Amino acid sequence: MGNNYDRALQWANDKKRRGDIKNPAVVGAVLYLGYCCDFLDTRYINLLASYFKMMEERHKMLGKILPQNKDLSYDRHKDKILRHLDCAVIEFMHAEIYDQIKADMTAGRFSQLKIFDSTRGVFTEGGPAFAGAGLFEKSHIQICIRNPNVIQGFFMPRKEVDFVRRMEVQELPKTMKTTW
């Protein structure tokens, strides 16, 4: 959830309302994304699209139906919040890369492929922030850590200080006041 404590807590409270969790909370983490499959970068979107085609062909050959992204019944914005297809394609890509690396190593070959440490993507969600906006109320970046070694540490986040209000309340010493 990035640096947005309030949005992270809102997400956790939504999960509680759906019965997915009992005690909503927010924990912070310091991350080094390492080798990141970054869906904010066109090359990784194109990479994922190629794995989607491979997955789609495999499903057709096996007579299987692809998972679908779905709306939550109460989501008035129809954001396809349940991203079953997206998740399946991403997991398929990671599994295929791992299997190919393993096959290369077993055959004594050098692999051109590398296992991703993390995955990052942006998700637009919620209604427009204001009339005519291209920004949405609940847009966020999601990060999936695949290699736990890139987690540098955890912390309990604190609520942000209203710095401007704090500065207005404090009285500056007379020696520090300046007139322009």
Rank of each mutant, 00 (worst) to 15 (best):
I45P: 00
A49M: 09
F52A: 08
M156W: 06
A133Q: 00
F130V: 06
M61S: 10
R58T: 11
A129D: 05
L82S: 05
K159G: 08
S111Y: 01
K15G: 11
I141G: 02
W11G: 06
K60L: 13
P148V: 10
Y35P: 02
F110L: 13
Q10F: 09
G132L: 04
D41V: 11
G132R: 01
R120E: 07
L82M: 14
I97W: 00
D38K: 05
Y35V: 03
Q152H: 08
K159L: 12
Y74L: 06
D86L: 10
H77A: 06
F116Q: 00
K102Y: 12
R43H: 13
K159V: 10
H140P: 01
M54Q: 06
K53V: 12
I151E: 02
N4A: 15
D38S: 00
G28L: 03
I81R: 10
V150A: 03
S139I: 04
D99E: 14
M156L: 14
R109C: 13
K177M: 14
S111C: 05
Q112E: 10
F163P: 00
L9T: 02
V30R: 07
Y5G: 03
A133I: 08
R76T: 15
R158T: 14
R165P: 00
N3L: 15
H59D: 08
A95M: 10
R158Y: 09
Q112Y: 11
L72K: 13
E137R: 13
R43L: 09
L31T: 06
R109I: 11
G121L: 13
W180D: 05
F136R: 11
N4V: 10
K80H: 11
I101F: 07
T124A: 11
S118L: 06
D38I: 04
G63R: 03
A25W: 01
K60F: 07
S50W: 02
M54T: 07
I45Y: 01
M54I: 06
K78T: 09
H94C: 14
W11A: 14
A49N: 15
N46F: 08
R76F: 14
K159P: 04
F136D: 00
R83A: 11
L47G: 02
D6V: 15
R17F: 10
R83W: 02
V27T: 12
H59C: 15
H77V: 07
